[in-house]
Design a protein around this nucleic acid. Structure first.
Lengths: 245, 245
DNA sequence: CAATAGCGAAATATCAGATGTTTTAAACTT
DNA sequence: AAGTTTAAAACATCTGATATTTCGCTATTG
């Protein structure tokens, strides 16, 4: 019956109006808003209040304000990075367990891998193969690169071609990396990862969706068990510092 | 080699510092920051700049500023709604097709349904059954309720128990609802949805994960095809107004 | 006595206007 | 022609005054 009376704050009111204009298509990405002074007059508010609204809209990724003679406030598309940051912020407070993160992977990545096996081009498979070789090289040097491991999974998700899923998986990986950075995984673990990737790649090259799905699932479960046992070894106190990553 | 020199803006600098303090655990949800005046002095900036930073942190869901004698700036946990809004903003600009949204569902919901079949309690299944009866009743009255349809899927996701997945599915559903609101689905379509839900529920009650998964997949595919054919009938011009939802 | 109206202090909200900084392009110099 | 200076547009920041909100305390009143 009544409309929300929450937004007594002027800047919030302005944020809502501009956001609404964008969502209704009256403002489009690239559009430039009137100059600070003029817009403040239009809204009937001071520059300070308008600028507070601008900062909020910038934080949301809807606006970009540039200084200089050709500057001003420009409408922006919210980019994936912004959405990902926001998701990561949220996940930080939820402080998800290894199991919860791993469950997300188990639900999504095997299906993704199945799709990838169906649609990947030869060039894309070659790229994955190169990644595998790179990993083997660092392994032979007694090292292990998280970046290479991440790239493998990221690439498979990218090939599957669903941007929404990619975004979610990126955020989940952000969290897992935060955990992995605290753990010393040993050489055996690294070799297991390499071999699992190898089996997944084999299935992809054979264009065997079912096997690709199963191998990916096994890989994720194996990593989960590995991480959990490492954590058990190193004791729960390492969990505390997890938050500080 | 160099650190990002992007943040010449004072408010952005403050945002980063406070955000960092939260992420490192030096500031916790519920903590109250010093009064505006004092904090501005600490940072060596004016109140105006500090307030701009506050507005950005509020937009991110990390801070809540209240007026009044017991007011001030309080650290907050980023809540699911905030993350969801952000995701929805992002999806708005990506303007995903029915196929892309449906693909997300196909990847996630069948797995979810499989898990639910394994762990649902009798009470939870009863709740789903009640939802089904409610839907039947509205159907018999010649109507159809999107809310009831959504509830069914939401409940299954909730039972599966992964908050991250729930959040993503909520956002995807937001988008799909925006599309459905523009479409007049006929009675046959509604009946098909009802029957599909019935089959899914049967599988859940039988605790048959495999069948639950398959039935959910079929249901999503059926709805996707329905929506696409409706869109084809009503012409692409309805797509334009989609953005204004 | 209990409900309530009023008051005052603390804290944020808003405003107005002065001053600083950045950016661009045109004018100017070599 | 190439580089340099300069002027103006637009945002960035600061300052200090004033308004509004909130809450505890007190006084009033039925």
């Amino acid at each position: 019956m009544f409309k929300s009376a929450k937004f007594n704050r002027i800047s919030e009111n302005i944020v809502q109006q501009i956001r609404q204009a964008i969502l209704e298509g009256r403002l489009k990405p690239g559009d430039r808003l009137p100059a600070e002074k003029d817009l403040a007059d239009d809204f009937g508010v001071s520059k300070a209040s308008l600028r507070e609204a601008f900062r909020a809209l910038e934080a949301l990724g809807l606006l970009e304000v540039r200084q200089g003679v050709s500057g001003g406030a420009f409408v922006r598309e919210v980019d994936a990075q912004k959405a990902r940051d926001c998701l990561t912020n949220y996940l930080f407070f939820r402080n998800p367990s290894i199991s919860e993160l791993s469950q997300v992977r188990c639900i999504i990545e095997p299906q993704l891998c199945e799709i990838t096996a169906q649609i990947a081009t030869n060039e894309e498979v070659d790229e994955l193969e190169k990644n595998l070789w790179d990993m083997k090289e660092t392994l032979d040097n007694g090292r292990f690169s998280h970046e290479l491991e991440i790239y493998f999974h990221q690439k498979i998700a990218t090939i599957a071609g669903n941007a929404i899923i990619c975004l979610v998986m990126d955020s989940v990986r952000d969290m897992l990396v935060g955990i992995k950075d605290l753990i010393h995984t040993d050489h055996d673990f690294s070799v297991a990862v390499f071999l699992a990737h190898k089996r997944i790649l084999d299935a992809l090259r054979m264009r065997d969706p079912e096997r690709a799905r199963v191998e990916m699932y096994r890989h994720i479960k194996e990593v989960e068990e590995g991480l959990i046992s490492y954590f058990a070894l190193q004791g729960p106190e390492s969990f505390k510092s997890f938050r500080s990553v």
